[in-house]
Design a protein around this nucleic acid. Sequence first.
DNA 1: TAACTTAGTGTAAAATTTACACTTCCAAAG
DNA 2: CTTTGGAAGTGTAAATTTTACACTAAGTTA
Lengths: 248, 248
Amino acid sequence: MKAEKIQQLNPNVSVDCVIFGFDFEQLKVLLIEREGNFEDKSQRLALPGDLIFNSENLLSAAQRVLEELTGLKDIFLKQVGAFGEPDRISKETDKQWLRSIRANPDARVITIAYYSLVQITDYAPQANSFATSANWYDVREIEDLAFDHYSILRQALDQLRMELQSRPVGFNLMPPKFTLGQLQKMYEAILGKSLDKRNFRRKILKLDILAPLEEKQQEVSHKPAQYFMFNEENYNKLRESGFDNFGF
Amino acid sequence: MKAEKIQQLNPNVSVDCVIFGFDFEQLKVLLIEREGNFEDKSQRLALPGDLIFNSENLLSAAQRVLEELTGLKDIFLKQVGAFGEPDRISKETDKQWLRSIRANPDARVITIAYYSLVQITDYAPQANSFATSANWYDVREIEDLAFDHYSILRQALDQLRMELQSRPVGFNLMPPKFTLGQLQKMYEAILGKSLDKRNFRRKILKLDILAPLEEKQQEVSHKPAQYFMFNEENYNKLRESGFDNFGF
DNA sequence: TAACTTAGTGTAAAATTTACACTTCCAAAG
DNA sequence: CTTTGGAAGTGTAAATTTTACACTAAGTTA
């Protein structure tokens, strides 16, 4: 008989994942859709999340749950924080839905939220488990979500904006090679403001963390742009010398 | 018969508080001492913290626990994050100690950490409950703590340093009136580096968030310094205009 | 009255930030 | 083949901010 540890769910603690993506136009977030009777579509949509196992650490739980619900595997996640209002599961439709999937549907649950930035083109979300779909949604168009997931999303977005100012996290949204125009659009989409092209270029190039490639864009109906790569080694040097403010 | 809700402890979720203070010299943190057989003193010291009640939100729980253990009341707390390694209660002395105070000592516990900044002179900590003492300790002199509290402290300190750069949180450590020298020492103590006096003064005064008072220091054995107050109204105006980087 | 301690002050050079407009290169349309 | 549309790419002058740096002033104590 195979010795297998019985995985016991902890009824009081869940994890939720805010996965951001970027399609060179807008900031997107990965949401699942659930079966059930919901007044409006927004209540059908939720962040991928579920209860943790007792033996599992929080980060692994978030990675497992994310994979179970959307198929996304080996995603680097960063904690946003804990959300634990006693009434965070107060919407009647959410309560009903929990009764349909949980052994202990009325337990007080606090959730730990994580976020990540991925290249949309690297992952094709596949709904599974209780998710009936898993798709990218434009962050600006989301007005509400199931449970307290809308406020979790807002807080993750705030944290992303903060981190974007002090670390090169945005490069995780970009493909290995990208143009300066694409990079600028990423900053603009996340920060929600437009930046001066010449000043943006001067500033980011001055840091010497972008390596220009020989290659240029192909088959675009305008002047082709040069491709760049993020130079992590140079960034690490810069960081060691105390740099922690991009100032965009 | 008085209708009283029975307060039921949640065996899986606790809160811990990192309370920072400043004595015009060093950054301090409020720690409790516990009864028990500990190899060394560091293992006897812990952040004030305990299990939450099921009906209670996380922030209120942190405030309640803080008051129960140290007497500090009505403290504004800010979340640091969740700490939930399955083995975070792995030290044998910690396990023993939990057996002496908890109904369910072997439960998996995740903890939500909060932090705050207070004026040491406003509060006289009073140990209570399972705390045998509650005192201020110099942050620089702490090398380890019970459970995973040392890493919680480090993370709270990191977060404090971040926030100090973008918001005037440091004024919470200062009395209502203070000198520029005291203010500078506060920044130096937290950031762990020395600042140029003239540049510091020019920079902070330029922001126009300090109101000079007529009053001067008394009975100091050197040239008496002018007192200032934090001008919150002006700061709010500054903030609304987009300011979010002190740049120290 | 001398010694000690912190308060308080100015400047010049360097670096950074800001605002701003035109030419280039490609594909697609006509 | 020519025109048009669209993003790429580039420089400068003015204003602001940052940096490095040393002495005098005003109290108390010895």
